[in-house]
Amino acid sequence: MKRFKIKVDPAVCTGCMRCMLACSWVHSKRFSLSGAMIMVDASGAECSITFADGCIQCGSCADACFYGALAKQAPEEVMP
């Protein structure tokens, strides 16, 4: 599995949280917010996007984003 640096642009994030659902699905084949390694807080004037320590930078969150708030950059390394 490739490991990507994820470029974050909170200014265009709408808080749809599709990235969180994609993360939980890819890693557990279940949909949940609590199981996601990316966290979106949309309660403020600007969305806040953070990553948990357990994030493996697989890029599935960026693949799911419709708005360009997350983008995969060139793979940093290939994980074993």
């Binding site: 709408t14 749809c16 599709r18 600007e46 419709f66």
Partner: peptide
């Protein structure tokens, strides 16, 4: 200020 979307919506019809 920003567009707001319901969960998983690609359009985001809501606004701040």
């Amino acid at each position: 200020k920003r567009r707001i979307a319901c969960v998983s919506c690609p359009f985001g019809c809501k606004d701040l």
